[in-house]
Structures are given as C-alpha cells and as structure tokens.
C-alpha cells in the first residue's frame, strides 16, 4: 500500500534570475498528509503550484500518478483532473451561484449531465456542511463559507490528491476552525493531502510528515513528533520558536 503518487526529483525553478526552488526531492505516498511550513519567500507555495502546473519547473522531474509533468498539454490535463487545489484567496467565480461554481467543472470537463452534476455538487455542499447556501452567490457568504465552497468545488471532481495553499491565511480567526474541521474530516477519510499552512495545531493533529522549507530548499522532513520535539536543523528550531510563541 505504499504507492507513490507524487514524486519530485531534483526539481529546480527560477523566476528570471531568482532561484526559487533548489534541488527539491520529495515523495508523497497515497493517503499521506504532508504539511509544508516555512518563512515567506521560502518557495513552499511555488512548490505545490508546480505540481498542477500553475508554475512550470525548469529542472528536475515531477511525476504524478505515473504521468510526468512536462509541456505536454495532454499530460497536464490528466494531472489536473486528478489533483484538486484550494487557494488562499478562495477564487470562487463571483458571477455564478454556489451550486454553479461547484457543478461547473463536472459539466464542462467531465461532460456530466446537468442534473447529475448538481446532485454531486449538493452532496459535496452537504459534506462541507452548508447545503442551504446552494443558491446564494459568493459575495453573500462569509470568508469561512466561501473557502468551504472552494473545497467542495475541488472535491466535486473526485481527485485523489488535494493541494492546499495557505487555505486559512485570509480568514478571520473565528472562521479558521470551520475550514480546518473540514480538512481534518477529509484527512480522516484517507485523502492524500499536501498542505502549506502556519496552523501548527492542525499539523500536529493530522500530519504524517512535516516539511520545513527555507530559501528554496527542503531543510528538514520528519514525523510531527520528531519535528516539534526534536528538530535537527538550527533554522527549523529558530522558525518553530518564532511561530509557536504566541
């Protein structure tokens, strides 16, 4: 059961002259929950955005479910159908209702009949516990509700892997919990998750592996136990001391 679903080998990326990812090596096993943390500018968002080709890597190899990520558009399509992404800014489509937001991709990418797509959409809305908002528009929802709709939208495509790019960083404190609860439930159901976040409580609860990134490199990778109680690198120690002393 240790099937590797994502593998990054010696991945390098530059933004013009700036070397943002340096020799990244990472393997994600099916069902694993990996939390990535680190100071801003460390490349953690860039790394997960490379996995669904929102950013293109220049060096190294990225393989998702046996499909290599290159400029080949067909490969990119296959990968995007199986990988879901939740953004920090939600990025819901403001001109569509909540229901339409979620059923859009099933209809147009999976070519589902409309009624079936709406059933799927409602099922996922219930999963994130806001089925009554189906016919509202994003502008009428709170931040926490919007992010939960965004999660439902990605889940509606039935991905095997979910990427989270700082999903709670744009939320007011009282709404963070509702989103994290959904993510914890998802983790318990066995989803493979790669989460970039500062929420260390969540990490301790859910993560199988902790990754600390700094200046484009993976500095430390360990189980949460070792990571929090016995960090090996000095930089990890410094980061943890800054972030855990609230």
């Amino acid at each position: 059961m240790s099937e590797i679903v994502i593998s990054l080998e010696k991945v390098n990326k530059w933004f013009d002259d700036f070397h943002v990812l340096k020799d990244i090596d990472l393997s994600v096993i099916k069902g694993q929950k990996i939390v990535v943390c680190g100071p801003s500018g460390s490349g953690k968002s860039t790394m997960i955005r490379c996995i669904n080709r929102l950013e293109a890597h220049q060096g190294g190899k990225i393989v998702v479910h046996d499909t290599e990520l290159t400029n080949d558009l067909k490969n990119i399509d296959i990968i995007r159908k199986n990988v879901g992404m939740v953004f920090q800014q939600f990025n819901l489509f403001p001109h569509l209702s909540v229901l339409d937001n979620i059923s859009l991709a099933p209809i147009w990418v999976k070519k589902m009949p409309k009624k079936e797509a709406e059933k799927v959409a409602m099922a996922h809305l219930e999963k994130v516990k806001i089925p009554e908002q189906a016919h509202k528009f994003p502008g009428q929802l709170s931040g926490g509700q919007q992010q939960r709709v965004a999660i439902a939208r990605s889940l509606a495509m039935n991905p095997d892997i979910m990427l989270f790019d700082e999903p709670t960083s744009a939320l007011d404190p009282e709404m963070i919990k509702e989103v994290l609860d959904v993510m914890i439930q998802l983790a318990e159901e066995g989803m493979t998750m790669l989460v970039v976040t500062h929420e260390m409580g969540f990490a301790k609860t859910v993560a199988d592996q902790m990754i600390f990134m700094d200046e484009g490199k993976i500095v430390e990778q360990a189980t949460p136990d070792e990571f929090f109680n016995n960090p090996k690198s000095d930089r990890t120690k410094l980061f943890l001391s800054q972030i855990l002393n609230h």
Binding site: K10, N12, D23, Q58, G59
Partner: peptide
Amino acid sequence: MTTAAINNSFL
C-alpha cells in the same frame, strides 16, 4: 537536463 546545463544556457 542537468542543473548545470540549465544554468549555462539560461544565464
């Protein structure tokens, strides 16, 4: 493509 080769052609 190795890292060195990328480095070269890019710069």
